[in-house]
Design a protein around this nucleic acid. Sequence first.
DNA 1: CTGAAAGCGCTAACAA
DNA 2: TTGTTAGCGCTTTCAG
Lengths: 344, 344
Amino acid sequence: MSSKVTPDPRRSLTLRDVSEASGVSEMTVSRVLRNRGDVSETTRERVLEAAKQLGYVPNKIAGALASQRVNLVAVIVPSLSNLVFPEVLSGISEELEDTGLQPVFGVTNYLEDREESVLYEMLSWRPSGVIIAGLEHSDASRAMLQNAGIPIVEIMDVDGEPVDSVVGISHRRAGLEMARAIVGAGYRRIGFLGTKMPHDHRARKRMEGFEAGLAEAGIELADREFYSGGSALLKGREMTEAILKRTPDLDFIYYSNDMIGAGGLLYCLDKGIDVPGKLGLAGFNGVDLLDGLPRRLATMDACRREIGQRAAAIIAGRSDTGLIGGAHVELTPVLQLGDTIRSR
Amino acid sequence: MSSKVTPDPRRSLTLRDVSEASGVSEMTVSRVLRNRGDVSETTRERVLEAAKQLGYVPNKIAGALASQRVNLVAVIVPSLSNLVFPEVLSGISEELEDTGLQPVFGVTNYLEDREESVLYEMLSWRPSGVIIAGLEHSDASRAMLQNAGIPIVEIMDVDGEPVDSVVGISHRRAGLEMARAIVGAGYRRIGFLGTKMPHDHRARKRMEGFEAGLAEAGIELADREFYSGGSALLKGREMTEAILKRTPDLDFIYYSNDMIGAGGLLYCLDKGIDVPGKLGLAGFNGVDLLDGLPRRLATMDACRREIGQRAAAIIAGRSDTGLIGGAHVELTPVLQLGDTIRSR
DNA sequence: CTGAAAGCGCTAACAA
DNA sequence: TTGTTAGCGCTTTCAG
């Protein structure tokens, strides 16, 4: 049995352990491990060898406290099951890959309270920046963002007043343009199917823009219906059936997302409804999924991945210079007519 | 102009600032903010008021360093676009909600190198536990996990040797049972359609189990095809077409996931192929999406959410006691025959 | 119930 | 090229 002094077996290794094992000062070990300053090749190798041998993993907590620098970027989104957000996150990850910055994800479930506590929690780790979905936040959240002293990028939406930078699309405009295209194609009895979520501001703005677009042509929404929870595809089917039963003379349905739109499309094909002749359909997002459907649903690309990339690039750029200052990036979603709007 | 001494305007607030603003020692402020020890109601209120007034956000970096405790749980998954993982993450978030622990997510893109660096990065923040997908890791990763001195839970899969705890299903068995069900239903010319990802070990194990199940009846896979990237639904269509063209007498196709299975199903319905009479189909995962399809694809539930919950519960339990010790939880996926396997 | 002192493990700044 | 010193902002511990 060894009689060595073993302080606390579960304590993890420190720079000091590596220092002792390699016979080099802690400071030099630190320099080697961070590739900083000039270190002779011999020492470097000795240190690296010792660190590897011991299985040393640096303690970023101590490092961050000492250097007052944290390589974390807080990313806050409302949901992961929406399919849209994972893509945004991918864009962020990708862009941050070689910047030395690390994204940390938080989810709010579309709840302002959750957003507040997730934000608070994340800010308490003093990240280098925050990327947060949406422009609507509680007063407390806005205050936290404002006082954080780090670059903030609000994403997805540009219809409103950002705290700092913003990258997104105008959902009002997206709804508006879809309405114009639909009216332009000659549809007149138009219904809307969407999510009930009171805090999905973007879906709300799309609907408002959509109604404004219809109003230009003197048209009002003929019917509308909202859902929450469950399989979106199935909901799309069910709601389409319900709304058509209630308002049989509809000649168009605008869905607040592609998933329910796809459900609606499948329903119509099942029932042998003439799409887009008798009934036109459109969704929103431009998700991959649509490529595999029997017919291409009309939609509008939400530029999800690019939004993530641009937002990450802003943070990465700012974190170099320490500068803060609102960048305003509005991307333009492209209308894809697909096969579910007649061409007139 | 004010002549006050303003140290660094961008430096964030410290306990000291709150201490000065409230006229109470830093120590007492700290106690109030952590709800620790006895503090008189008056002091408590004064401190809380001052903290709120200033907009103080505690510095967890310093707190963690001093207390040697970090309320973070590292969660490492291969992908977010798979639909499966967001559900696991939801399960984890939900379970951790009121434990004071916070999940932090990392994504590896099915790359061992990425896994290694993400793991290293996360361990350097000294989390309270690690939840990581899969049992296959590089030697370096295994070593890191082993030496971390914190509870580790490997999830999704139980076919192999865990480092510490494990929560998942047996993918071999899942494949095996699906094979038995298919053979039992009288199918004989069976094909497999899957992902090419060399590092998707679970898909591989399912296929191996599947082949073993067929072998019991003296059957070999009649054909197989692999894909990577792109819209899974579309790939499912294309690959189904391709494999049926190449091997027209197939009477069953087993897909490595529900998405491509759904694509295949839509293809068959389009082409008027008699499902499940002439051709049977089955997928894997039991995703929500299937509920909205014109016909219910046979599948097997992967218990995604529950896996997340159980894994999180293990970490939460361990972090109280500081104990480490392998828990072994094997969940049993349920075969759902749906409408795409004939009942014989 | 409250405060003072001593670090946590690392890095900035300076000295050798 | 390397080492020394002094904290980073908080919590632990112990003393009032």
